[in-house]
Amino acid sequence: MSPAEIKFYFDDQEVIGLTGQSVGAALLANGDRILRKTRFNEKARGVFCGIGVCFDCLVVIDGLANQRACITEIKAGMKVQTQAGADA
């Protein structure tokens, strides 16, 4: 058995991830390392702690802001967007 492919979207681009992968992991595997821009200095941020502690990998998922990419599992058809600032 090998993991099934799951299709989702990052900033409207199609991305293929594998069963059970987090949004952050699937995006890193796809070469996407910048997940948001900070609200004051507009600095790029990505996955840092990888285990849900640091809240640095925040993205917008299906319209809901401030979701931790590193601990949110990908689902087919999910729409993930780069988060700009607090984006709430």
């Binding site: 059970g20 987090s22 992991a25 699937a26 996955v47 990888g50 590193c70």
Partner: peptide, 16 residues
């Protein structure tokens, strides 16, 4: 720039 635990969790938990 990441934590070692983050790099390891990507490998162990996601194969990435």
């Amino acid at each position: 720039v990441m934590t070692p635990g983050g790099v390891q969790s990507l490998i162990k938990g996601h194969g990435v």
